[in-house]
Amino acid sequence: MAVLTVTAHARKTRPARRRTVNIPAGILSAIWLAIVAVPIYFVVITGFRTPDAYTENGPLDLPTSATLENYTSLWGLGFATYLTNSLLVTAGTVALVLAVALPAAYAIVRNPNRLLRLSFGVFLLGLAIPAQAVIVPIYLIITRLQMYDSLAAIVLPSAAFSLPIAIVVLTSTLRDIPGELYEAMTMDGATTRRVFTRLVLPLSRPGLVSVGIFVGLGAWNGFLFPLVLTQSDSQRVLPLGLWNFQSQYGTNVPGLMAAVVLSALPVLALYLFGRRHLLSGLAAGFGK
């Protein structure tokens, strides 16, 4: 159905294939590997250096004396608050999207009502509309709702602009459930709610995970909504915090890089413990 299938699929069938080595591609890969590795090395190593060593020995020097001070001083700068806020925003957005998208996808798949089809069409039209394009009216709405400078102000528009992709992915997941299963349950006298909890919910789990990760990453990384819709230190999320650290630290690059490393840890944990889910989530827009 979808043009593209992604890693999750590919894993099942990995043919041990013998092919002539593709030399140009190998060389290119090596070059790109270096390009990826240098900034990563820079981020990780610099975080352990002292500001003076950084200034004196240049950005790519080996750490002669490792220090953890950059990391410990971050906690005093409100890093924990930013981290908590980011986690709250991410969890809130994911929960809201999943809670409203799955029932809607269920209705769209199982009910041929014209109104539902129309709304599905509207969701499709919203697929590629960038949230930043409507930041002015969003700001107006949020201030009029007296929600300016709250985490909810970030969650609501972030969730709304994640809904189209969530509904598209979930409808395609639900369509793969054979109609006979619904009919069999109905025959046994199951109500809609029972079908939903006993059939739809369990069988759509892979789709929910993909959507959850995709939406979660978007909310986790989001910068514009927090920038425009919050202002106080206590409501600051991580990406905004990083930006703020940039000025606060001035030329103390090691401190800034320690913050960059810490900000990546939650996603790294996700990657280590759920690589397959993360990959499917990243490609949620196109795989299923």
């Binding site: 409203v100 998208a101 029932p103 809607a104 209705a107 769209i108 539902l116 809904l163 349950m185 809609t192």
Partner: peptide, 11 residues
Amino acid sequence: ERPGLGWAAPA
């Protein structure tokens, strides 16, 4: 079994 419009209403 057909879920009504109410299911899609929140979204």
